[in-house]
Design a protein around this nucleic acid. Sequence first.
RNA 1: GGAUGUUUAGCUCAGCUGGGAGAGCAUCUGUUUGACGUACAGAAGGUCACAGGUUCGAGCCCUGUAGCAUCCACCA
Length: 849
Amino acid sequence: MLDKRYDHKKVEEGKYEFWKKEGYFTAGDKTKSPFSMVIPPPNVTGKLHLGHAWDTTVQDITARYKKLRGYDVLWLPGMDHAGIATQAKVEEKLRKEGVSRYDLGREKFLEKAWAWKEEYGKNIHEQWAKMGLSLDYTRERFTLDEGLSLAVKTVFKTLYDKGLIYKGERIINYDPVLKTALSNIEVVYEDTKGKFYYFKYPIVGSNRYLIVATTRPETMFGDVAVFVNPKDKRYKDLIGQYVINPANEEKLPIMGDEYVDIEFGTGAMKCTPAHDPNDFALSNKYKLERIKCMDDSAKMLDICGQFKGMDRYECREKLVEKIKADGRLEKIEDIVHPVGHSERSGTVVEPFLSKQWFVKMKPLAEQALAKSNVNFVPSRFKNTWKQWMENVDDWCISRQLWWGHRIPAYYNIKTGEIKVSIEDINDPMYKQDEDVLDTWFSSALWPFATLGWPNITDDYKRYFPTSLLSTGYDIIFFWVSRMIFDSLEFTKESPFKDCLIHGLIRDSQGRKMSKSLGNGIDPMDVIEKYGVDALRYFLTTGSAPGQDTRYIEEKVVSASNYLNKIWNSARYVLDNLGEDFKPIEIDFDKLDPVEKDIINKLNVTIKKVSSYMDKYEYSMASSYLYSFVYDDFCSSYLEMSKVSLQGSNESYKNIVKSILFYILKDIIIMIYPYAPFIGEELYQALPLHKKSIMIEDYPTEINAKKCDLTSVEILYKMIQDIRNYKVTNKLAPNYKLKLVIETKEKLFEGFENYLSRFSFAKEIIVSDNITSKGSKYAYSKMTLFIEDDISLEEKEAKRTKDIEFLENEIKRCENMLNNPNFINKAPKEKVELEKNKLEEYKKRLALLK
RNA sequence: GGAUGUUUAGCUCAGCUGGGAGAGCAUCUGUUUGACGUACAGAAGGUCACAGGUUCGAGCCCUGUAGCAUCCACCA
């Protein structure tokens, strides 16, 4: 016997451990066909947020659904060491203890980082359990484990040998707080308030000035030239002459290049090749010197004279003061311009000339574009991916960190010769590169490396390529695209067949959830309050594929109410089945119309829900199930069943019980992928259940035949009309009316009983020839009179309104049907439908008149 | 500058290859009917951003305009 209320805490208790213990999460049933997914490995930095909850729920629904569909489902869990993010957190913790990583040294620091990983990894496991994720823990991986490390080294060496990894000096994005290089996509551009400084550069051999504007005066110590556009009439004659750099009195040549925008600033641009990517390109073109003026923590170098050792911003301020004092400041303008910030530390990124390792992207990108057959869902994300691939820059993969895969390159300490090796080189003549690889370098191998690659293991053979990858659109570039090109390069196959892309979760006002706004929602709090099933249902319904969604607490409440509804319908059904209930097979022909009707509706629902589940459209699937549960089952059939279950026909009672049982079971199984805990709980309460809902089969349609059920529709419509009648006439819902039905057809057995129960009728008279003065309602086969004291005028008014409505409808139908174009061009079924409607309206009109 | 998404009820959003506009919440009326007040019954509420076009027929397809959002590339 179920409790009166659905108590999520009670329902959730112990189920996850039970599933795990029974081994239901473990893949490997060779008698079935495989369906595989890898989890997007969360960072071991901390707690999971609502975005993770969403992403993993989508995957868990898929895993559980596919399992019910008879697949051998592998959902492989794991975590990401998250180089920069984790190192930053560990360093922050150390700083609070008053130590720096340099005090500890590399080895000791890494011990601390591993301890961190253990601690937070445990957190994540607990949260996965709370979420109910059906992960195969026997195959769990970590991006820094032995197998992944081997894969990383193998990939690095292979690409290096092919010339697709190189070490080069380039302008890279440098994070001066974390002291590491970043890749282009780790830089976030934000419109930032700044100043545009206009300086007077004295022209050598003249008393004139050239005005040059800059936003970063501190880089003037690295200037090597001033560029103007050769088409710029103002400055054309100056090309070839020299100006004096007001920062350090150095002579700078005035050069011409079309790159310079005549309209922007003053049309004269300073050129700092070591601190700006565009200037770097110009320096390549014109063979200009590259002078660095800052070190790796953005402090000014010796060449900056009196500014040496200052922070970049302090230098900026002081230098402007100096130039102003020298009388060479023209003006300062306030501007808003995009400035690159580090994705992790938030600090302003410094473009910086530096020697780093790069992946040469063009050949890999071309191959990926040519050979990838990943099916993006929704498909538009394929274009997002393609466009990025087509314009991708070389990927800077070296990071000046300790937490990560150390670059397997070794330098001869005398000659500097580079050896790249998968095995460690212990030769004292060789020293390993100090840097580690970008975290994404290892995550890019996730789908195949977790299955054993570079070894061709049984799991790799069986589960790769994976069936589905699900993630948010925000990491298509970071991760999805890199998995695709690495997979095609190393396995010759796309890493997954389908790639399901979902949106981001935002707060109730549509803002991104962020620490600084303090608007983040901890999924664990939601679970505590409303239960994990309600959270899961909320996350995966009510939004369209690929669209963002907002966290709205009322919707979680509403999800929880829905689950309670199912809970209570189960309570009703189970109470009525009785102790020794055994379902009997349904013979559709022997059913009453009301039963036939609900079976038909169930079948339609199963069909619709299945087809949307197959397309990963969990929102659409849920909405069909929802309206079946609420409208067709709870509000209609379940109420109808109360009549037949109280009747005297024992054998038919068993049929009704069986139908209730089948419907309930199917509802439970269909809701279960969304809400596995309540699903299991209710399933266990069913008679004749298996050990777990996890080993059940997905519902299939019950045998049914086509038949005319308009009288059932009329019954439902009549009930609604009578209820409506009572409300408009201010009668109590249980007010006993006298109902008179005129019809020439024989009503199906029980019609009057059903009607009586729902309308609280005092008396129902059925006859084929009636003259009543009651309020009149016309249906295609019959007329209903409600005998009452309503004035004739009011009745007449209502009748006129009904007639007007029908006449309009008839006109609409006739217009369509009289249009030869419609008859000729519209599908046959549509024409037939309209004809039938017309006929019905005409019948009803005739009955009203 | 390029691209994508979005504009539908008071609010948040659905709407599946074009065939009479839907849900949740909120609002209003009513209800101790034996599954459920975390409920039930009923009601009200929309020129589907705007302008053209295609079509027998457009929320849906095409073109354009406007607002909002996001991504990519960026001007020193």
